[in-house]
Design a binder for these strands. Structure first.
Length: 513
RNA sequence: GGCCCAUUCGUCUAUCGGUUAGGACGCAAGAUUUUCAUUCUUGAAAGAGCAGUUCGAUUCUGCUAUGGGCUACCA
């Protein structure tokens, strides 16, 4: 019974990888690593109509960014290739023929129009044992006629012949035995002559068998077709090596009804894709977690906990910790609303674990995008600057607003703060402060702060008024890190300059727009 | 319509018949702070409903309700 664990993630290249798909990939990966198994990436491109250029690269890049490592796949190779279904036509053709020869499948010539007509004529029409006898297929047509139609180049499909009157049992690791009657299954299309490609169902079973997949871990949307897959394994005579099934609950909309969709992200302002995606057809751009300033570790951690828990209260876990704790025993069976608020918190938490230098590195591209000119500032300066802001941000991109004053002197001053903190006497007070600061030799926070505090005390000044006006002059508004951390970083010259600029430029009496 | 799956605070979840139903996010209040945050403390907040099994049900069973999925020559 104990055979090597081999799992696969099998997306179709029909667009960017959805965050729900990412979670499915993650659970496959965690399970594989936990059990010393193999992670396969198989590209299921059997729908030639929906193929989207760039989607496959996107999938690879996304998984790489997230740290989900593939052992066997199109790029990685492996002993069970090819790993792209469109390159496995010969294999599928052979297996379709096997099924046909064994009488487990048949050829059907009904056109889409004829099928539509049948559906319109019969309520709840289904192509199955009760209707196949009156359709145009190799069961109803004479053999010569079938051959003639094929020779004529008529397009056809191969349908699976589902025998009615059976209870089909799917053994799901999460849900136990799910039993359904074979009567409600239809004769699914397994192969289309039009593009010489199988449908998902056939390709999936053949590949999983040939690739010796031990566990099929996929979304709940596949549960209804799982009985068909069980029947297919039987028909091929592979029932004894059929994989275990795990049907994962779906990711749902944060509000309202239904499963999470691309639209929800646009509507509620969070990404539903790991990476930014430019649709080659529509030309529209969808935001990604990476470009939105999420750390891959945070996305992984957040996603892992949407439908799984380690069995205790631990929440912040690295990939290695997730692997060491992962088990389907602690997987939930119900859909999880995608509450991205907690994702923000995870990102905040992971940012705290970054060193100042690491954060500075991430800040650079974000600053550039926001039009902050970092030229002339040393790595050390930037690291110190973002370091003072680290605890205050959820995303790297939050820095672009909050860190700006480290690189550009304020040109405007928040009207609300001016009104509250800048009185008639303030300019004179600030000039005295500027003079005091100019006289300092050591401008470090540790040295400067006590001097200014003493000055305030000995002159019986109001600390709140002094410090807030000071802050307003240096930062442009009354918020930000500790004042003397700021002044230490920007230095004496810049601090004094900003003080004098403010004295010159702030005019609280002027009406502000 | 048919079939299948699910149902604990607003959200993600713990509990594997006996608990004051725990944690986290978010929210509120307080403390800290020269500002804004951070941080810390505290608080409000849940077993869908009805039957049954049982000495005892959030936990097991059934029904109802609700939510979700599937019902293509898409995956």
């Amino acid at each position: 019974m104990a055979r090597p664990v081999r799992v696969r993630f099998a997306p179709s290249p029909t667009g960017p990888l959805h965050i729900g798909g990412v979670r499915t990939a993650l659970y496959n990966y965690l399970f594989a690593r936990r059990n010393g198994g193999t992670m396969i990436l198989r590209i299921e491109d059997t729908d030639s109509n929906r193929f989207v250029p760039g989607a496959e690269d996107y999938i690879n890049e996304s998984l790489a960014w997230l740290g989900i490592k593939i052992d066997e796949g199109v790029r990685e190779g492996g002993p069970f290739g090819p790993y792209k279904q469109s390159e496995r036509r010969d294999i599928y053709r052979k297996h379709v023929k096997d099924l046909l020869d064994a009488g487990r499948a048949y050829i059907a010539f009904d056109t889409p129009e004829e099928l539509d007509a049948a559906r319109a004529a019969t309520p709840n029409f289904q192509y199955d044992a009760s209707t196949r006898g009156r359709m145009r297929n190799s069961l109803t047509l004479p053999a010569e006629e079938v051959q003639r139609l094929i020779d004529e180049g008529q397009q056809y499909v191969v349908r699976f012949k589902v025998e009615p009157g059976r209870d089909v049992v799917v053994n799901d690791l999460l849900r136990g035995k799910v039993t359904i009657k074979s009567d409600i299954l239809d004769d699914k299309v397994l192969y289309k002559s039009a593009d010489d490609l199988p449908t998902y169902h056939l390709a999936n079973i053949v590949d999983d068998h040939l690739m010796e997949v031990s566990h099929v871990i996929r979304g709940e949307e596949w549960l209804p077709s799982a009985p068909l897959h069980v029947l297919l394994y039987e028909a091929f005579g592979w029932a004894d090596t059929a994989p275990e099934f795990v049907h994962l609950p779906l990711l749902l909309k944060p509000d309202g009804k239904g499963k999470l969709s691309k639209r929800d992200g646009d509507r509620l302002g969070f990404p539903v894709f790991p990476l930014e995606w430019h649709d080659p057809k529509s030309g529209e751009t969808s935001s990604g977690y990476r470009e939105s300033g999420y750390l891959p570790e945070a996305v992984i951690n957040f996603l892992a906990l949407l439908g799984w828990n380690p069995g205790d209260d631990t929440e912040v876990m690295s990939m290695d910790e997730l692997i060491s704790k992962f088990s389907f025993d602690h997987c939930s069976r119900s859909g999880a609303k995608f509450a991205f608020e907690k994702g923000k918190w995870f990102n905040h938490t992971y940012i705290q674990q970054l060193s100042d230098a690491e954060l500075a590195k991430l800040f650079r591209p974000a600053a550039e995008a926001a039009g902050i000119n970092l030229d002339g500032f040393s790595d050390d300066y930037i690291a110190k600057a973002v370091g003072t802001l680290k605890s205050r941000i959820n995303f790297v991109k939050d820095l672009t607003e909050q860190a700006r004053f480290y690189f550009e002197a304020p040109t405007t001053y928040a009207p609300k703060d001016v009104k509250k903190r800048w009185s008639e006497q303030t300019p004179e007070l600030m000039e005295r402060l500027a003079v005091l600061l100019e006289g300092l030799d050591d401008f470090s926070a540790a040295a400067a702060e006590p001097v200014v505090m003493d000055w305030i005390k000995s002159n019986e000044l109001h600390m709140g008024n002094v410090m807030n006006a000071f802050r307003l002059a240096v930062v442009g508004e009354c918020k930000g890190p500790h004042m003397f951390e700021i002044t230490e970083i920007i230095g004496k010259k810049e601090t004094v300059k900003r003080l004098r600029d403010a004295i010159r430029n702030i005019h609280p009496d002027e009406p502000v727009v």
